[in-house]
Each structure stands twice: as C-alpha cells, then as structure tokens.
C-alpha cells in the first residue's frame, strides 16, 4: 500500500489542524451476487491465506459489478461479516442510489468511481471466480502481417489480435480478446485488456518482455524458462498466469 503525501492546494492555515490530500491503494471487495454464505466461505479462505494483510485493513465494497437496480438484501450482513473477519469496511463504490443510502445509514463513505481499466492488483478479488465470460467477438479479429517495430503499439479493440509477423523488443501489442502470435514475440503482450480474464495468449515462439491477461502481469525475468522459444498457451487461473506447451 502506498502512501505518498501530496501537498494540498493553498488552504488557510488554522494552526493545530490541516486537511491534506493523500493517495492510498485500497483493496476493493467486488460483490456480484447476493449470497452471504458464499461470501463467508470466500472471505474465510482469503483471510487464511494472508492473515496479516487483512488485519484491520481498510476495504472498499465494490458494487460496480452488481446488477444495476437490484437490491442487496444481505448488505448489512456483509458489512458485519467483513468486520467479523478483522477488516474495516470504509466505503462503497459503484453503488446504485438505493445502496448508497444504505451505505450512509451504515456509516460508510461513498468512494468516487474509477475508470474501468484496472492495473494489476492481486488483492482486488471477487466473491467467486467470474463465470467464464465469452470473449467479445463482436468485431472480427485484427490481423497484422507487418512486423511491429520497437516503440509501436497495436490495439485490437473489441476482439482478438492475430500476428503474422514478429513483435520487436520495445513494442506493445494489446487486445480485448485473445492474442494469437504466429511469429516471434520479443515485446509486450497484453490480452483481455478491458478486464476480460478469460482471454488467452497463444504464441508460437515465446520470448516476450512482459505478458499480461486482464491486468495480471509477469515480466520476462519471472517467466518459466522451459517455455522460452517454444509454442505456449497462457491463461489466467484466478489471479495467476498459467503456462502450458502447445
């Protein structure tokens, strides 16, 4: 958790007190279904894995993935459950008006909504693994048959990316869907960039600087050596990237 203190805009100094802006990175608990029992099991498992981390940790309840105007009957129970596991719920975000009112009664803050695209945050867990989303194949795949040079970026919006020529070190290729690379890749590959964890990467000659699926990434140094230079498939299991020969 980072905590750089930013200087506040000029405010009248009152001697003993001051308001200053700070930036914190907070874990957000995403709630997608109204199922307190499932949440209980989930929290129990998570806290057992990283007890120290969750002890007294401030947590934001993220309702942006919760169906828009449905009530969340177990909301008060959920808040109590989170406290029961030692965390401190501090606010909600992405909540409907009704739920914001409930939050107010439960003395929780309303956090500002953030943009959809999420950087890697291994702790932003969901209630349960998201059901296998269909990769959006509304657009036909973007086919690239020229080498992608250092410093260039390719983005296959709304679909898959098919690479027929190499990707140089220092280049970046991204797709909302899968990435299929039939030539050597030495640059960065990011699949499922708009938070699509079911996206996969298929690579004929593996050797990138960085791979990422839905924001979870691994750099070249941390890639399993046995796959370098060979055909490989990468998918996301929970929050970890899984590599398999193909």
């Amino acid at each position: 958790m980072t905590d750089p203190t930013k200087p506040a805009p000029a405010a009248p100094r009152s001697g003993a007190f001051d308001f200053r802006a700070s930036i914190y990175t907070l874990p957000c608990l995403q709630i997608r279904r109204d199922d307190a029992d499932a949440l209980d099991a989930f929290l129990s498992e998570q806290v057992a894995r990283l007890p120290k981390f969750f002890e007294q940790a401030p947590v934001v309840i993220d309702l942006s993935q919760y169906p828009a105007d449905e009530p969340l009957h177990s909301f008060p129970m959920i808040v109590g459950m989170i406290r029961g596991y030692g965390m401190t719920p501090v606010g909600v975000r992405g909540a409907s008006e009704a739920l914001r009112e409930q939050a107010r009664l439960l003395e929780l803050a309303v956090m500002p909504n953030l943009r959809q695209r999420r950087r890697s945050s291994p702790v932003s867990a969901s209630v349960e693994p998201a059901p296998e989303q269909k990769v959006s194949t509304n657009s036909s795949p973007l086919i690239v048959d020229q080498p992608v040079r250092s410093g260039q970026r390719i983005y296959a919006r709304g679909g898959d990316l098919i690479l027929l020529a190499g990707v140089s070190s220092g280049a970046e290729v991204m797709a909302d869907g899968h990435i299929h690379a039939y030539a050597p890749v030495r640059g960065r590959m990011l699949a499922g960039v708009r938070d699509n964890p079911s996206a996969r990467i298929f690579c004929r000659q593996f050797g990138p600087e960085l791979v990422a699926i839905a924001g979870r990434y691994q750099v070249s140094e941390d890639l399993p050596q046995k796959h370098i230079g060979r055909p490989v498939q990468i998918r996301l299991r929970g929050d970890t990237l899984e590599f398999a020969s193909i």
């Binding site: 020229q146 992608v148 040079r149 250092s150 410093g151 260039q152 140089s168 070190s169 220092g170 280049a171």
Partner: peptide, 13 residues
Amino acid sequence: VRDSDRMIGILSS
C-alpha cells in the same frame, strides 16, 4: 539493433 528497429518503425509511419 534496437534503435534501428525503432527508426524503421518511424520510417514506415
């Protein structure tokens, strides 16, 4: 080699 690669990309764009 890397700098040349960058330059080739710029030449083509």
